[in-house]
Simulated scan of single mutants.
Amino acid sequence: MKQVKLNNGILIPILGTGTNTFGKENNDYYGNITNDTKELDSAIDLGYRLIDTAISYRNESVVGLAVSKSGLDREKFFITTKIPGTEGFRTKKQVESAIQESLTNLKTDYIDLVLIHHPWDNNEEIAKVWSYLEEYVDNGVIKSIGVSNFNIDQINYLINNSRIKPVLNQIESHPGFWQDNIIEFCHKNEVAIQAWGPLSKVNDETKEVLNQIGKKYNKTWAQVILRYQIQRNVIVIPKSHRKEGQLANISVFDFVLTKEEMRIISEL
């Protein structure tokens, strides 16, 4: 597994798994939590070590259970969770309560990466919440902190008004919405980019182009997308409920797209 070095020197796998419908009835985002770890059990068996969850997903406890059941050392995993960017998570006391609950749910004494899940229309307030997270980095309870769904202006404000630079910005990125500008900005400022929903909203015409490229490598359209992102140093967290899909998603390190293929994909 290729890894990306964050701006604080910590390594993160370049490919992991999303979990927002894992451990829920009918694989429904809003479904009741079942504590069924089957999706994570198979992912871990296949070699996934980067696991992405969030407080708003309500399934941190499912992640914690799967990791503890795996029998692997906690240090083998890179676990990301996210604190909501909503009312109720703005004061120091609210942030402290949220982090403590995440630690309990994840069955761990530290979290590898905590992100502010969404920005809101008050950069000064965001920077204040950020300062509370910085204190957890100081004491080692959180190893790294970053953001999610931040635009250039929002992340630039945080870079210029915080003590600890964000290590990562998790954004939507897929064909038709690659988000090249913010990716370029973040890379230039040593902020890693992670793509959520990397295989979403892909139409049939785009799939046909990607499948044509993939034929040469015996790869699918989805594998070509993941490889494209990896080659431009974007971390990806695809999600599949099937072991076969999980295996396909992680089987993207045995081929390299040409410059021309990268150009074609970039224009989709």
Results as ranks from 00 to 15, higher is better:
Met1Tyr: 11
Val4Ser: 09
Asn8Asp: 15
Ile10Glu: 10
Ile10Thr: 14
Ile12Phe: 02
Leu15Lys: 00
Thr17Ile: 12
Thr17Phe: 01
Thr19Lys: 04
Lys24Met: 06
Asn26Ile: 02
Asp28Phe: 09
Tyr29Lys: 13
Gly31Ile: 03
Asn32Leu: 13
Asn35Ile: 02
Asn35Thr: 05
Lys38Cys: 07
Leu40Phe: 06
Ser42Val: 01
Ser42Leu: 00
Leu46Tyr: 04
Leu46Gln: 12
Gly47Thr: 11
Gly47Asp: 12
Arg49Leu: 12
Ser56His: 06
Gly64Trp: 05
Ser70Thr: 11
Leu72Met: 15
Asp73Gln: 15
Asp73Thr: 15
Arg74His: 12
Ile79Lys: 07
Thr80Asp: 10
Pro84Gln: 04
Thr86Gln: 14
Thr86His: 13
Gly88Ile: 13
Phe89Trp: 09
Arg90Met: 12
Lys93Gly: 01
Gln94Cys: 06
Val95Glu: 01
Ser102Cys: 07
Ser102Leu: 07
Leu103Glu: 03
Leu103Met: 06
Leu103Asp: 06
Thr104Lys: 14
Leu106Asp: 02
Lys107Cys: 11
Thr108Leu: 07
Asp109Pro: 07
Tyr110Gln: 05
Tyr110Thr: 07
Asp112Asn: 12
Leu113Ser: 05
Leu113Met: 11
Val114His: 02
Val114Asn: 00
Leu115Ser: 01
Ile116Trp: 02
His117Cys: 02
Trp120Cys: 05
Asn123Tyr: 15
Asn123Gly: 10
Glu124Arg: 12
Ala127Pro: 08
Ala127Val: 10
Ser131Lys: 04
Val137Lys: 11
Lys143Arg: 13
Ile145Asn: 03
Val147His: 03
Ser148Trp: 04
Asn149Tyr: 09
Phe150Cys: 10
Gln154Met: 13
Ile155Tyr: 03
Asn156Gln: 12
Asn156Met: 05
Leu158Gly: 02
Ile159Phe: 03
Asn161Val: 05
Lys165Tyr: 02
Lys165Asn: 11
Gln170Asp: 08
Gln170Leu: 08
Ile171Cys: 10
Ile171Trp: 05
Pro175Ile: 09
Gly176Arg: 11
Asp180Met: 08
Glu184Phe: 03
Cys186Met: 08
Val191Gln: 03
Ala192Pro: 09
Ile193Ser: 08
Lys201Thr: 14
Asn203Gln: 15
Asn203Phe: 14
Glu205Phe: 14
Glu205Asp: 15
Leu210Ala: 12
Asn211Met: 13
Gln212Trp: 09
Gln212Ser: 15
Ile213Tyr: 04
Gly214Met: 12
Lys215Asn: 14
Tyr217Phe: 14
Lys219Arg: 15
Lys219Phe: 09
Val224Gly: 08
Arg227Glu: 08
Gln229Phe: 13
Ile230Asn: 10
Ile235Ser: 02
Val236Lys: 00
Lys243Tyr: 02
Lys243Cys: 01
Lys243Ser: 11
Glu244Trp: 00
Gly245Lys: 01
Ile250Gln: 01
Ile250His: 05
Val252Lys: 04
Val252Arg: 00
Thr258Tyr: 05
Met262Glu: 10
Arg263Cys: 06
Ile264Glu: 07
Ile265Glu: 04
Ile265Gly: 05
Ser266Glu: 13
